[in-house]
Amino acid sequence: MRHVISILMENEAGALSRVSGLFTARGYNIESLTVAETQDKTLSRMTLVTRGSDEVVEQITKQLNKLIDVIKLNDLEESPHIERELMLVKVKTNDHNREEIKRTAEIFRGKIIDVTTHTYVIEMTGASDKLDAFLSVINNDIIVEVVRSGATGISRGEKGLHL
């Protein structure tokens, strides 16, 4: 099962490598990992996407909690939550496909943010599977590059991950 784990940790040098090191050392897989400082500069917030059986994910959360710098964490899968990923896609354009690309991007609520005579850059946010869906309908031959941020997430309602 896929799990999105939200982590609040001390904003110390090396915090990221403690987390990624734990995953390699124990053979857990990381699908994506995003990290940035929060409004409180002493804290950083990480969103980690992993896959594993319930037992493995239980171990992952325990091992993460055991890291001294980790203050709190939350497996977003346990309650309603919102997940968003940012994607930038550069595609080759020509007179025949420009309109269609634009339409498709609009259907997926993407925006074209850079235009040259032969390329578009499309910006799109959404749950990771929506971004996957968009890529699957675009002709692979015209894709120049794809950049994805990895998922970030937040729980719905009153619940929150804070001090």
């Binding site: 090396g14 090191g21 001294i68």
Partner: peptide, 14 residues
């Protein structure tokens, strides 16, 4: 040293 010992310490500091 902080990098080398990370997997075999409870914690480390620079």
């Amino acid at each position: 040293m902080v990098g080398i010992t990370r997997p075999c310490v409870k914690h480390n500091f620079l």
